[in-house]
């Protein structure tokens, strides 16, 4: 998959990430309506995802990010046994308007705001994370930076072209009577798997 960098980890490890920011991240993410799932291993996500699929009656799934993450590939392969899950970019694009759940990845989280940084250079990654009503995202739980200032210091090294940004919870609006409503143009549910042993 096309990314603005395949070496995020290298830059993050220049003193930006620290486990001690996790508490802040959790608090802020939850305040922003992120559905946070803390898991040890990637495989621990499978039963939780199965439950979500069962509860929502999701039928068509699309997923990105498995090409440079064999654990993720394992999760997707497991899901593919029971479900229709597209990982080929052309298949994703073709079926994008009908997808019920999109699976994608985030590079790191920001303690100050509960945001996750997403590398969305690939077109299919953008569709997956925006069109389906549910977006399920995988992130290394250890990759948390302190503030937005630090987050942009990382981008200063990484961002030379392409499409990136920060996502903080689901799509929302308060345009009618200032009543908060989730899921306007993007997903109404943003589920984040923070994987402890991601490396």
């Amino acid at each position: 998959m096309k990314k603005i960098s395949h070496a995020w980890q290298k830059y993050l490890q220049q003193g930006f990430i620290n486990k001690k920011y996790w508490q802040d991240f959790r608090e802020n993410a939850q305040a922003a309506s992120v559905e946070l799932q803390e898991i040890k291993e990637y495989k621990d996500a499978i039963p939780i995802i199965e439950k979500i699929i069962a509860e929502t009656g999701a039928q068509q799934l699309g997923a990105v990010g498995e090409d440079d993450n064999k654990n993720l590939l394992m999760v997707y392969t497991a899901l593919q046994k029971q479900h229709k899950l597209y990982t080929d970019k052309f298949a994703i694009v073709k079926n994008a308007p009908q997808l019920d759940i999109g699976f994608s990845t985030a590079e790191f989280g920001v303690g100050e705001t509960g945001s996750v940084c997403v590398d969305n250079y690939a077109y299919e990654a953008r569709l997956i994370s925006m069109l389906p009503p549910i977006n399920i995202v995988f992130m290394d739980k250890n990759n948390i930076v302190n503030t937005m200032t630090d987050a942009f210091a990382v981008l200063e090294d990484v961002f030379t072209e392409g499409y990136t940004g920060f996502v903080t919870g689901p799509s929302r609006t308060s345009d009618i009577e200032r009543v908060l409503t989730l899921g306007v143009h993007g997903p109404s549910r943003f589920i984040l798997f923070a994987v402890e042993n991601a490396g």
Partner: peptide, 15 residues
């Protein structure tokens, strides 16, 4: 809000 739902950054033509 401490952060908006989406901060999108685009640099040059994308696929």
């Amino acid at each position: 809000q401490r952060m908006v739902s989406y901060l999108t950054m685009i640099d040059g033509p994308t696929p």
